[in-house]
Design a protein around this nucleic acid. Structure first.
Length: 261
DNA sequence: ATTGTGGCCTGCCCGC
DNA sequence: TGCGGGCAGGCCACAA
């Protein structure tokens, strides 16, 4: 599903949509427009402008527009894909469908040159925003510093994994990336987030940055080393112990009881 | 304030 | 063969 690695791929793809005049907007699904906007408002806000920059904060894709226009915010939920001129941002999306039914095109920005930028989302868990509140998101997980990570976890009694997925503290980490990071760092996802030693914090920071970078390079949040074992009867790829499974932070969580402490 | 829970969206897959 | 139920998780509303 789209976590930070997928949305980063979408951001790179969206760069091919920059500096092209917008001729119109196709927003057939009112549910997909968030923050009280409707199709005519989005169309009026974007038509005649062009996209000038593709940014990302956590899992939110931010497209700046020309001439003092609004920021177009795209969120992909767990099944959303970005498609520009018919080219998709990622090859494969876990838990989504690979059928390309046009009925699942929830939103499109059309360019005067005939191309378009589309959001394709079977389950409609994503959404479109104008001028989204970027301040509601924490520091991006790809570039977070050790001090910022320490501060994001400090004094929290919530499970470590839940805190890592709290987008207001630290933006971009979803379920699979959290499991991969904690597996690599050798930390039990259920531990209180504020209870890490300085050495454990450093280790977590190193593996968080490393996991995010690796999964971007490999092409998605499903490409982690733990991922193939994340199923019934799965064993730890590192030491062969049978993985534990439980709900942590409201999400299905897999971890190795032997080396994650 | 913090933390936890339930519900929403829909397609897919398993078992009957 | 069709059908029902469970499951996936990002996000939000709401409760304690």
């Amino acid at each position: 599903m789209p976590e930070l690695p997928e949305v980063e791929a979408y951001r790179v793809l969206a760069e091919s949509a920059l500096r092209r005049p917008v001729s119109g907007v196709d927003a057939p699904d009112g549910w997909f427009l968030k923050g009280g906007i409707d199709a005519s408002a989005v169309s009026a806000a974007l038509s005649g402008r062009s996209l000038t920059a593709a940014r990302r904060r956590g899992k939110l894709l931010l497209l700046d527009t020309s001439g003092d226009g609004p920021v177009l915010g795209l969120r992909f939920g767990m099944t959303g894909r970005l498609v520009v001129d018919g080219r998709a941002g990622v090859d494969r999306l876990l838990y989504s469908s690979d059928q390309g039914l046009s009925a699942w095109d929830r939103f499109a920005v059309q360019f005067a040159d005939g191309g378009d930028l589309r959001v394709h989302d079977p389950r409609r868990l994503g959404g479109v925003f104008l001028d989204p509140d970027e301040g509601r998101l924490g520091v991006d997980a790809l570039t977070i510093t050790p001090a910022a990570l320490r501060s994001a976890l400090a004094r929290s009694t919530a499970p470590l994994k839940a805190r890592l997925m709290d987008q207001a503290r630290l933006a971009g980490v979803g379920n699979l990336l959290a499991d991969e990071t904690l597996w690599r760092a050798g930390l039990d996802p259920r531990r209180p987030a504020g209870g890490l030693t300085p050495a454990e914090l450093r280790r977590l920071h190193r593996h968080l940055r490393g996991s995010v970078a690796d999964l971007i390079e490999r092409g998605g949040s499903h490409s982690g080393d733990l991922m193939p074992a994340r199923a019934a009867g799965g064993v730890c790829p590192r030491d062969g112990a049978e993985l534990s499974r439980a709900t942590v932070g409201g999400r299905t969580t897999w971890w190795c009881p032997k080396h994650q402490r």
